[in-house]
Structures are given as C-alpha cells and as structure tokens.
C-alpha cells in the first residue's frame, strides 16, 4: 500500500470522518495543538535563548533545562497526538502538499539536533553550564533548534494556505 493510499484510508476512516463532520472536534483539536506548541516549542525557546546567553544568563543551564524537560516533552506529545488527528482529518489532501513534507523534514532535523545535543553535551552540563561563555557547539545547537522549530511552525501554519481546494 502506498503512502497516498494509506492517507486516503485514514481520511475515509470513521475517526477521520468524525473529525471533519463534528462542529467542535476540529477547532478543539487545533486549540490543543496550539497549547501543546506553547509548552513544547515555546518553553524550548527559553532553553535555546539560555544556550545563546540571551535569557537568564546568570542561572546555570541545568537549572533551566532540567526542570523544564518533562513539560517540554509532555508538550511535544500533546502536539504530536493532536497533529496526527489533524492530519487524519485531511490526510488525503495534506499528503500531497510539498509544504507538509518540508514540515516533517524540519521536525526530523530538529529531533536529530536535540538527540545530538543530549548525546554530546547532556552528561557534562554541570561543567560547561556554569561557564560565562558557553561552548560554540552548544550555541550552535541552540541556534539550530531555534531556526528549525521556527521553520516547523511556519510550514505548519502555511498548510491551509497552500492547500489545493
């Protein structure tokens, strides 16, 4: 089964049809997607700005990153689940949009950047996180994260504007 056929099946499924036809379901899911974004990309913005020395620079990085991590990850789960629902409701149309594929690509790159950061810098955060000037690699990860998540939000918001009716 091709990806396009799978998208058509999701679109035609009971869940897909219910999401489209309910008066309230779609806007509620969209509202939750936005709240999820505020917790995920929104809180990550502050972490990234801290890595760049532009936010609460006198507070050790670990004191900002560690307590926010569960909220951030929870936000990503909410955004992902609601995002999948929004996709199912319009799957057969969205799967054909280049902008949606770009969005998925940017999410993948942002994920790789986060994993690389955790692998390379996560264990030594208590050492470098107290320095006045953070290592270049850390700053690079912060800029990459800011840029990639911004592109995810931008390409996501463009989906309805670039849809083929």
């Amino acid at each position: 089964m091709s990806v396009i056929e799978l998208a058509q099946q999701l679109y035609d499924s009971q869940l897909g049809t219910a999401l489209r036809e309910s008066v309230y379901a779609f806007p509620i899911v969209e509202g939750l997607h936005l709240i999820g974004l505020a917790f995920s990309v929104g809180l990550l913005l502050f972490v990234d700005l801290r890595l760049l020395g532009l936010f609460l620079r006198h507070i050790p990085v670990a004191n900002i990153m560690n307590p926010l991590r569960p909220w951030l990850l929870g936000g990503f789960v909410l955004t992902l689940v609601t995002g999948i629902l929004l996709f199912i409701a319009a799957a057969s149309k969205i799967i054909l949009l280049p902008v949606f594929l770009f969005k998925l690509g940017f999410i993948a790159l942002a994920g790789i950047n986060a994993l690389w950061f955790e692998h390379k810098w996560g264990k030594t955060i208590l050492t470098w996180g107290l320095q006045d000037v953070l290592p270049t690699g850390v700053k690079f990860a912060g800029i990459a994260s800011l840029l990639l998540w911004s592109l995810v939000v931008i390409t996501g918001r463009l989906i309805p504007y670039l849809s083929i009716e």
């Binding site: 936005l34 709240i35 974004l37 505020a38 917790f39 990309v41 929104g42 809180l43 913005l45 502050f46 926010l68 909220w71 939000v153 931008i154 918001r157 463009l158 504007y161």
Partner: peptide, 17 residues
C-alpha cells in the same frame, strides 16, 4: 497569520513558564 501565531507563542510560553 504567522505574525499572530508568533505573538501568541511568545505570550503563552512566557505565561506557562
């Protein structure tokens, strides 16, 4: 719309924090 969602995310994430 992008300006609007940018503003909303800056505001909401600050309130959440």
């Amino acid at each position: 719309q992008l300006l609007h969602i940018t503003g909303m995310l800056l505001l909401l994430s600050s309130i959440v924090l």
